Computed example of a mutant assay.
Amino acid sequence: MSRLNTNQLSLSYGSRQIVQELNLSVPDGRITALVGANGSGKSTILKSMARILTPVQGGVYLDGKLIHRQPTKEVAKNLAILPQNPSSPEGLTVRELVSFGRYPHQKGFGNLSAEDNRMIDWALHATGMTTFSGRPVDHLSGGQRQRAWIAMALAQGTEVLLLDEPTTFLDMAHQMEVMTLLEKLNKEQKRTIIMVVHDLNHAARYAQHLVALKDGTVLYEGHPEVVMTSQMLREVFNIDADIIPDPRTGAPLCLPYGLAEEPSEETPVLSPTSGARSVEPQEQRVQALA
């Protein structure tokens, strides 16, 4: 059974419903990428999984228990989130930032324990930030700063990491730096990672599980080689694109050409369903690749 899943989850901002009756299971020990156009509900779902947003109906379950009914500190020992564009107080050093990840494990306002310091040292080492530990966070490059925040999440000692657009506003080199780190954490430490990603080629290359959303509904779900199709791109993103295998990795590579044309009345159109599309050959492919 998946450690993290949703059951009939409905989410709203005021009177505006964003997600309706979502059923989603996050594969343990894998990288899952949520993709979709702006406003499709990706970040909203992630916020609900992190207890930042309370459901209108249904719920998010962590280890079979409703996450919104569990004590905050208990949730924080199992799940860490890196929000979009996090900020820190001016002058805060990298080590001080990473030490905040130990808060769920502390009692009162006591000093850091030997175990806390061990975890901080490990998180700095795992992210390649040890040599930057005494440097102010606001003096770092974009990629270094993002790695510092990931180190803080790692210091929590959780098996599940939620990341909301971890490469936003980073140049190409820093994007690769962050994505390679996440891949390493997943492969070497079996971390379960759920991330919202805008770059479809990053999603297809680094994730083992893709969830394509439109209007708060899962239209496609499964291995990138199955989900990343021209049909999915038309339905979810309204673009025309070719999909070719990456010459180095074999992962599906998206080559967009323009906006999709509106279908004529004679052109059959598949109607959306309340869940992910079910196509037998695709299901067989997912099972074969799982």
Rank of each mutant, 00 (worst) to 15 (best):
Q208T: 09
I194F: 06
L185T: 04
I194P: 06
M176I: 15
V218R: 07
F169V: 01
A212F: 13
E221V: 10
Q189G: 04
D199T: 01
D199M: 04
D171T: 00
P224H: 13
V160C: 03
N238V: 11
Q208F: 00
P166K: 06
A212R: 09
L163A: 12
T192H: 14
E159W: 02
D199C: 04
E235D: 13
A173V: 06
E235T: 05
D164E: 11
S230D: 11
R205H: 14
G222H: 11
L233F: 07
E188R: 13
M152S: 06
M195D: 01
E165Y: 03
H209K: 09
K190Y: 09
L181Y: 07
T217C: 15
H198Q: 12
K190S: 14
E183W: 06
D215P: 01
V178Q: 09
Y220P: 07
G157E: 01
N201R: 11
V160W: 02
R145K: 13
R191D: 08
L154K: 00
Y206L: 04
A203M: 03
M172H: 14
R205A: 15
Q175K: 06
I194L: 15
E188C: 08
V196E: 06
A155E: 01
E225K: 15
G157M: 06
M195K: 00
I193G: 08
A204S: 13
T229H: 10
H202R: 08
L213G: 04
M152C: 09
I194K: 03
A153H: 00
I239N: 05
Q231I: 12
R234S: 11
V227P: 12
L154T: 00
N201P: 08
A203H: 01
T168M: 05
H198A: 03
Q144A: 12
M179L: 15
R147K: 15
G216K: 12
Q144S: 13
L182V: 11
M228I: 15
E225W: 09
G157C: 02
